[in-house]
Structures are given as structure tokens and as C-alpha cells.
Amino acid sequence: MSVLIYVDQADGQVKKASLEAASYGAEVASQLGVEANALVLGTPEVDLSSLGSQGIKKVFQVKQAELNQFDAQQQAAVIAEAVSKTGATIVVLSNNLTGKALGPRLSARLKAGLVAGAVGLPDTSAGFVVKKGVFSGKAFASIQVPTALKILALTPNAFAVKEGGGVAVVEELAVAVPAAKTKLISTNKIKGQIPLSEAELVISGGRGLKGPENWGMIEELAQLLGAATACSRAVADAHWRPHHEHVGQTGGSIAPNLYFAVGISGAIQHLAGVNRSKVIVVVNKDPEAPFFKAADYGIVGDAFEVMPKIIEAVKKLKAS
């Protein structure tokens, strides 16, 4: 019996969401009194023994460069074999964009119950129950997983990365790798920006900002804080901002530590994508804006007057 944590990579680096999954998986393992091992597919350019810091005992690496490109079908086959070779009874992965493609495939392949979007540790007092978000963040469901093999896909930013454990042993795992049926043609990443799904801090703007030319203050505050930028659907639809920044029911769903919304009304469909944020700040000139009901802190005021002052105050804070 052991917990096997799938650790995925992008551009040769381990994704932050996978460090969260590793920390979470290690906690699940210690709760059950079993070992936590990691599985790495491909050849990332990092020292994998550092996963010991998250509580990982052993890192199994399937060292084949073709696995650096993601094909869900191929990877699911490889992971399934690794699960049986390592004797894992729980598979943990991040419910990030790779996890959303992999978790379901593994579940169907291994007939293992899947919790897609786990937000907490398992409760083993009556069976094996894990909580996940449902109804677009408006509620939680406790999912009972009765199968012998279980798969937990952790919601990004729902579990803090643990630092300071030991050093993991890295071991090569020989697994047959089937050919990938999909072929990567090109990658288009926004350079120098923190991916929205991994950001701890997010500054977001809505139609209240009047036009794309006024996004300077959103970007400046984001830059100062090391935050990602987001926007409402109305803004993306008007092509003021790129589509990948759009959050809400039909856009991205995020749960950062800070969601700072400027000139966004807070329509229920917008809230659906951000209501799991730990702290919500709203700047809106309308005291009746629905967003204030979901906020922790707020300023009723004109963004064009308030934001420059906030930026000044943050600069002062950073200098002190």
C-alpha cells in the first residue's frame, strides 16, 4: 500500500500545482500510515530528489523524452502500469489542466473512483470520503469512494506547498511507453506572466475601467505585487483583454489567496469563478454593486481616483 503522486512538468520545471499535490499526497499517506511516492514522466531539468521537501520518499521516473509532450492517452497507460508496479492504492494528482485530462482516463482505465477537484483531506471515519467543490463554487459535496484504488485530483491552490522535509530517492522505472496518437504542433504561452491558474494573487478589471487603454493601473499593481491579471467576461467579449484572462462560470475558475476586483459588478456568473478566493477586495463606485456582498474588503469609490493611491501605498509598503 502506498500513495503515488503524479508530478507534471512544463518547460522542464515541476508545476507549482504538482508541488501542492505532492504535499497533499504526503499528508494523505501519513494519515493512512503509508509511504508517499512520486511519479515523474519524462526528463524535467530539475533535481527531483528535492521533492523530498514536500514529504516524498521515492521518486519514480519514467525517463523517456517523448513523455515531455503531453498526450493524455499515452500518459494514462504509463501511469496505470506504474500504479500496478509500485503497488499504489491511492493516486494523487493536481486537478490542473493536465489533471483534468488524465484523472478521468485513469479512473475509467483502472475502475478507480475519482474525486475531481478535491479541496480537503480524506475523512476515513466512515468509508473514504473527500470533499470537492460543486455548483461552480457555490457548494461542496462529500464524495464517498468505495473502490479499492482511489484517485484524488486536488484543486489548484487549495493546499499549501510543504517545505522542509527530507531528500527523496530517485529511481528509474521501466514502463512500456505506447506511441502518442496526438502530435504537438506549437505552444503559445504568454511570456513573463504568471499563469492565472497558479497565481496566489490576482488583480482583475471589469467594464468599469471604460477601455483597454486604462489597464495600466491594473498591470502596474499586479507587477508590484507579483500578481496575475484577470478580467470579467464583458471585458474579454469586448476584446479589451485576451480571452484567457476571463474568469467566471464560462471562463477560468480560480482560488487565489487574494482576488482584487476593480470596476466589476460581481454578477453571479462572475462570482462562480472566483468565490473560492481566500480574500476578496472590491473597488467599485456603486455601493449597491453585488460584489460587495461577496467581498472581505472594499472601497466604494472611483477606480481612477482610488487605484493610483493604492499603487502609491503598495510602493511605500514594498520600500519599507
Binding site: G103, R109, A116, V134
Partner: peptide
């Protein structure tokens, strides 16, 4: 948008 599994497509593909 109710149970938010994002799971069915991947499962169908695997099956």
C-alpha cells in the same frame, strides 16, 4: 456547471 466533474469526456475516451 452543477457537479463540475470535467470528467465524462476523458472517461468516454478511455473506455
Amino acid at each position: 456547471i452543477d457537479y463540475n466533474g470535467s470528467s465524462i469526456g476523458g472517461m468516454v475516451a478511455e473506455l
